[in-house]
């Protein structure tokens, strides 16, 4: 197979004596959809934070399209093509739905502060283009008719979808989704999994997904990596992972020695 788009190798991070992530490796090829699963507190979100520069890895490398991302600040990592959503929703609550997406689109904008203050024709054209792009994104997520609402007033499921729309506004190569289905009801989850598949094909993004809902993960992902206590315990296709005794142990606990 060709060079992976996202190549993570030997990533480690410890908070004092607590090893949050140990020797984490992952290869994500262009167009793939992989999942990262594991019990609560396994270190999944910490891995996302390492990938996006919120934390600096103490060991290991993160490469996106061959470029080393270690140590870059978060906004530069976003500029190089990595976007994410947040497990605990982090929308710009007091701004409108449209503005949330437009802020993400600003990353690819060219006109600077002075052309904004002077309202140069280039700036005006760019603003119009950004608005159009943002509205098109909201259309995909069926949020277009709510574009003028404050994002914190959206229902919970819409907020989750707006987070994905906003992440796509940065035109990412890799999209990291942190529990996008958390708190959703079964119908919403079905709709979400269809949406993720649609987004993946329509925007040509490569997706890494953290999710607890096994049914959803098994249905849409090609490859699954399972971690527990920061250590990778299994990796493979959904079927392989499902039957792996280490995974069953991590989720259900080890059969006890006394045998009851």
């Amino acid at each position: 197979m060709s060079e992976p788009l996202l190549d993570v190798s030997g990533l480690s991070l410890a908070f004092g004596g607590l090893k949050a992530v140990t020797d984490f490796s992952l290869k994500l090829h262009k167009g793939e959809l992989q999942a990262l699963i594991g019990p609560n507190g396994a270190g999944k979100t910490t891995i996302f934070n390492l990938l996006t520069g919120v934390y600096r890895p103490q060991q290991g490398e993160v490469r996106l399209g061959g470029r080393l991302l270690n140590g870059l600040p978060t906004h530069k990592i976003a500029a190089s093509g990595m976007a994410r959503t947040f497990q605990n929703i982090r929308l710009f609550g007091d701004l409108t739905v449209l503005d949330n997406v437009r802020i993400a689109c600003h990353l690819r904008a060219r006109a600077g502060l002075f052309s904004a203050l002077l309202r140069t024709p280039a700036h005006v054209a760019e603003e119009a283009a950004i608005r159009e792009k943002a509205m098109a994104l909201l259309e995909v997520f069926s949020l277009a008719d709510r574009h003028a609402e404050l994002s914190r007033n959206l229902p919970y499921g819409d907020q989750r979808r707006l987070e994905i729309a906003r992440a796509l506004g940065t035109e990412p190569k890799v999209l990291l989704l942190d529990e996008p289905a958390a708190g959703m009801n079964p119908q919403e989850k079905v709709a979400l999994s269809e949406l993720i598949t649609l987004v993946r094909h329509r925007f040509g993004v490569t997706v890494l997904l953290i999710e607890h809902d096994m049914a959803l993960v098994m249905k849409i992902c090609e490859r699954i990596t399972v971690i527990d206590h920061g250590v990778t315990i299994a990796s493979g296709s959904p079927l392989e992972v499902q039957g792996n005794p280490a995974v069953i142990e991590a989720y259900l606990g080890a059969p006890s020695a006394e045998g009851h």
Binding site: T74, H75, A78, F86, G93, D94, H106, G169
Partner: peptide, 10 residues
């Protein structure tokens, strides 16, 4: 609004 989200959006 949210510094962490802002920097994640570039």
């Amino acid at each position: 609004e949210n510094e962490i989200a802002a920097s994640a959006m570039g």
